[in-house]
């Protein structure tokens, strides 16, 4: 593993993680090992169907997937023993690939409820409406989101790009310790991509780690990861530095599929 450095503090430790689709039992993750230290940005790449999205969704606790073996530790705690909402309150944030619509639920109220749930978990009182409003407006502005859209319902009638910006607004407000970005770059035009990347870069620092999943190297032109992992058929086939992304862009994934097949 590339990131096991004795002086660094691990935030997320995934060991031998196996997971299957709950409804069908089809195994997707077939033994993943990964360590993300505090403050690091990791990119997980890989061909379609390799299990990239599944990995971040399993870490967030999505019930569509069942963990069949392995362990996940987060800040020293057993993450798999926590319910999804508890994981969120402990600072695990997932920016969804396909954010759902919540008809009639106003973004402002929804996000304040989220922030208050996190604050309550830390023994803090509810945030004042005025203070929250200032944070909310700043985040909307930063992500270059149309403020009028934010007066509608959560994600309702949003374009693909607007939904992703909305995820980033929530990331900005919830200030997670571990941000999981599930194909946040897909469906974004170049301006939106830059805005999202700037948002992530601004939040890089010792108090936050990022695990981002992407199919293309494109996003990594704006967010330089500390480590790149290639997931093939439910396992990490290769790990390396940011240069690995360029190599993949040039060579594709097929050569890795073959080696993963033979390594079995």
């Amino acid at each position: 593993m590339a990131s096991t450095n004795g002086t660094k503090q691990p935030l997320l430790e995934v060991r031998g993680l196996r997971a299957a689709v709950t409804a069908t039992g089809q195994e997707i993750l077939k033994g993943v090992d990964l360590t993300v230290n505090v403050g690091e940005v990791h990119a997980v790449m890989g061909p379609n169907g390799s299990g990239k999205s599944t990995l971040v969704n399993v870490i967030a606790g999505r019930p569509d997937f069942a963990v069949t073996a392995g362990q996940v530790h987060y800040a020293g705690q057993d993450l798999l023993a926590m319910l999804p909402d508890r994981r969120a309150r402990e600072g695990v944030f997932l920016a969804f690939q396909y954010p759902v619509e919540l008809p009639g639920v106003r973004p402002w109220q929804f996000m304040k409820a989220s922030v208050d749930a996190l604050r309550k978990h830390r023994g803090l009182p509810e945030i004042g409406a005025r203070e929250f409003d200032a944070m909310f407006k700043a985040a909307v502005k930063e992500m270059e989101m149309d403020a009028d859209l934010m007066k509608r319902s959560v994600n309702e009638g949003f374009s693909g790009g607007e939904k992703k910006r909305n995820e980033m607004i929530q990331l900005a407000l919830m200030e997670p310790r571990l941000a999981l970005l599930d194909e946040t770059d897909s469906g974004l035009d170049i301006d939106a991509l830059k805005t999202v990347a700037a948002g992530v870069n601004k939040r890089r620092g010792p108090e936050r780690s990022v695990l981002l999943v992407t199919h293309y190297q494109r996003l990594l032109g704006y967010i330089t990861p500390d480590f790149v992992h290639v997931l093939v058929d439910g396992r990490i086939a290769l790990s390396g530095g940011p240069e690995l992304a360029h190599e993949l862009e040039a060579k594709g994934y097929d050569w890795l599929k073959e080696s993963a097949g033979t390594a079995r």
Binding site: P84, A88, G104, V105, A113
Partner: peptide, 22 residues
């Protein structure tokens, strides 16, 4: 799951969705 992932407990999550519906 979207609501849970935002830190709302299951009861609050239902409430938020239903309240929005109404």
């Amino acid at each position: 799951f979207y609501c849970l992932q935002r830190g709302l407990d299951p009861e609050e999550a239902h409430y938020v969705i239903i309240n929005g519906f109404c």
